[in-house]
């Protein structure tokens, strides 16, 4: 149970490899979302006014509330990792459950927002109907809104699935203070997804608040 996989010399080497591998994976995620941020910055520079007006179609209160939800889930995740390090199985299960429930709440709110946008004919490519001089740029902005938050929400859903799996593994007592790289890595992933939202929120919701 606490022996390393056959190609590693010892557990320390295995643990370091897992940690480094996860961070390198997160680097690829930075660049994955980075393409979206670069594209957004590109248009924000060329369509500044139109984007600021279009941003007012989003309700910043919902965005801020969801930010709080996600930050809270990050706190729960950090505590879950701590519980795994200390070998406290019940705490680990508790915090994993809290993290994934808050994550699910975030996604639910997100979909509620989407449904509202659909009802207001604000979904590009799907019965889109905005009139006026900024109609086209509004469509562009909303395209970004849906792609960026959609890709983010997809990451959330994947994260929740991982957390639920970990919860079940924790219940079966798989993790120990020596062996819980999966929990550590899931934590890194979850915090990263949180960071993406930390940037998405002001860029999408608050651009036109003044």
């Amino acid at each position: 149970m606490t022996t390393p996989a056959h190609h590693f010399e010892d557990l320390g080497q295995q643990r370091e490899a897992a940690a480094l591998g996860m961070w390198v994976f997160l680097v690829t995620e930075i660049l994955f979302f980075g393409g979206l941020f670069a594209a957004f910055a590109f248009y924000r520079s060329t369509h500044y006014d139109a984007f600021a007006r279009a941003a007012n179609l989003l309700d910043w209160r919902v965005g801020a509330g969801n930010t709080a939800v996600l930050i809270t889930s990050s706190l729960m995740m950090a505590l879950a990792v701590r519980a795994a390090r200390l070998g406290r199985r019940r705490d680990l299960q508790l915090f994993l459950a809290a993290t994934s429930l808050l994550g699910a709440l975030f996604v639910a709110v997100k979909f509620w927002e989407y449904a509202h946008k659909a009802a207001e004919h604000l979904v590009p490519g799907f019965d889109f109907a905005v009139e006026g001089p900024w109609a086209q740029e509004t469509r562009l902005f909303l395209g970004f809104y849906f792609v960026m938050t959609g890709v983010h929400a997809l990451h959330m859903v994947i994260g929740i699935c991982v957390l639920v799996t970990l919860w079940e593994m924790a219940r079966r007592g798989v993790f120990s203070p020596e062996r819980h790289a999966l929990v550590e890595n899931a934590g890194l992933y979850w915090h990263f997804v949180d960071i993406v939202w930390i940037f998405l929120f002001p860029m999408l919701y608050l651009m036109g608040a003044h």
């Binding site: 369509h47 590009p124 740029e137």
Partner: peptide
């Protein structure tokens, strides 16, 4: 999906 990001018609 018709979500135009590069579409010149809508300012892309």
């Amino acid at each position: 999906l018709g979500i135009g990001i590069f579409d010149p018609a809508i300012g892309g």
